[in-house]
């Protein structure tokens, strides 16, 4: 009798046509104009960025659009030292949660132009955009964040976003 079959490969491929949705489309349009657009919950007044069209706390539509600043606070961070397949950034690099001024939720961003040993919670940072002619509806329009040179934010100002 021949060898038993112990493994079977069944390749699977499905293609998707992604639609971002109304709120995220607004956000991506803002990005292509070099600005961050959030949306405010009419009930709890929190500002979400990127907006998803709904307040995840109250479950109501976020209809009020808010333009946010170009600066924010590093609430927490991680220094990436481990290489992995598909890595496009030279290690070590810093990945941080950034709370934009005027927003009530932090999002993830790349931090550059600072030695990894100097990154810290509360550091003030600013977005660095690609050249105006290269702006598009993609997060690649934001090259990275870098220290803005402002004094660090007090812990109390971002502690509730950790």
């Amino acid at each position: 009798m021949s060898e038993p079959v112990t493994m079977l490969e069944t390749p699977i491929k499905i293609e998707y046509e992604f639609t971002a949705g109304l709120a995220q489309s607004r956000y991506l349009k803002g990005i292509s104009e070099g600005k961050f657009l959030g949306q405010r919950c009419p009930k709890c007044t929190k500002v979400y960025v990127p907006p998803r069209g709904s307040c995840p706390t109250d479950g109501v539509p976020t209809t009020d659009e808010v333009e946010l600043g170009n600066t924010g606070i590093v609430t927490t961070y991680c220094v990436v030292n481990v290489p992995f397949q598909g890595q496009s950034i030279e290690i070590p690099y810093i990945c941080a949660q950034i709370l934009l001024d005027g927003a009530n939720i932090a999002f993830m961003g790349l931090i550059q132009e600072v030695p990894t040993a100097e990154i810290r919670m509360g550091m003030r940072v600013e977005a660095v955009w690609v050249d105006k002619k290269d702006l598009g509806p993609t997060m690649a329009s934001v090259k990275y964040f870098r220290p803005s040179g402002e004094p660090d934010a007090a812990y109390e100002t971002f502690s509730e976003y950790l």
């Binding site: 639609t19 971002a20 949705g21 109304l22 709120a23 995220q24 489309s25 998803r52 069209g53 709904s54 479950g59 539509p61």
Partner: peptide, 11 residues
Amino acid sequence: EELRNDVEVLQ
């Protein structure tokens, strides 16, 4: 649904 995502259809 050309424009809305799942959350926006559901809400």
